[in-house]
C-alpha cells in the first residue's frame, strides 16, 4: 500500500461523492469520466494492464461520449427537488455498507500469495499458456481468446444484441414521429392506443 494507492483511492471516493451531490448533469458525466480514469490507473497498479486499458477506452471514452450524446437529446440539469438529501435511501445504503464491511472481515488479506483465489486453478494459467499457446506473452489474452473463448463469443453476442436493440429503439421513435406528424412531449396519445 503505497502513497499513490492511498491518493488514488481518496480521489476515487471524492469523485464518487461529488457525482452523487452535483446537480449539473454535464459536470456529473465529466466526473464519471474522471472516475473511470482514476479506476483505470488503480487497476494498472493492481497488475491488470489489460483491464486498465479497456476501462480507460470504454469507461472513460465511449461511455462518456454516449452519455454526452444522450444529454444533448434530453437536457442537462437535474430537477432541484431530485438532488436533495434523502434519509431513507441513505439509511438503506449505510446498512448495506455495514453488512458488506462485516463480510470483508472474513476475506483473505489482499496480496497474500496463499489466498484461495491464487491456489485453486492449479497449475496456474501462466505456466499452462506457455506450452499451449506457443509462447503468447500475454496470459490474459490467451485465457480470454482460447480457454474462455466461448465466454468471449457470448460477450460478442450480448454486444451485438444490445446494438440491434439500441438501433430498433431509436428508429421506432423516428417512425412513429413521422407517422403522426410528431407530438412533442405528449404521452397521452401513445397511452390511448395501447
Amino acid at each position: 500500500m503505497t502513497a499513490i494507492d492511498v491518493a488514488i483511492l481518496l480521489f476515487l471516493a471524492i469523485t464518487a461523492v461529488t457525482i452523487a451531490r452535483i446537480r449539473d448533469l454535464w459536470a456529473a458525466v465529466m466526473f464519471t469520466g474522471i472516475y473511470s480514469f482514476l479506476s483505470a490507473s488503480w487497476m494498472l497498479l493492481l497488475d491488470a494492464p489489460d483491464v486498465s486499458f479497456t476501462e480507460a477506452a470504454v469507461g472513460a471514452g465511449i461511455s462518456t461520449v454516449l452519455m454526452l450524446s444522450t444529454l444533448a437529446l434530453t437536457g442537462t440539469t437535474e430537477k432541484a427537488s431530485g438532488a436533495k438529501f434523502r434519509p431513507i435511501p441513505f439509511m438503506v445504503v449505510v446498512l448495506t455498507g455495514c453488512m458488506l464491511i462485516y463480510g470483508t472481515l472474513d476475506m483473505p488479506q489482499i496480496g497474500d500469495p496463499s489466498d484461495p483465489i491464487h491456489i485453486h486453478p492449479s497449475p496456474s494459467f501462466v505456466e499452462r499458456t506457455q506450452g499451449d499457446m506457443h509462447g503468447l506473452p500475454n496470459v490474459v489474452t490467451a485465457v480470454l481468446g482460447s480457454y474462455r473463448g466461448y465466454d468471449t463469443l457470448g460477450e460478442t453476442t450480448v454486444v451485438f444484441t444490445a446494438g440491434i436493440a439500441v438501433l430498433l429503439i431509436l428508429r421506432r421513435g423516428k417512425e412513429e414521429d413521422s407517422k403522426t406528424g410528431g407530438r412533442p412531449g405528449s404521452a397521452a396519445a401513445s397511452g390511448d392506443n395501447a
Binding site: 497488475d47 496480496g111 497474500d112 496470459v139
Partner: peptide, 12 residues
C-alpha cells in the same frame, strides 16, 4: 483480489 504482493502483471 487478483493482486499478489511483489508480483508483476501476467505478461511473460
Amino acid at each position: 483480489m487478483g493482486k499478489i504482493d511483489g508480483a508483476t502483471a501476467p505478461i511473460v
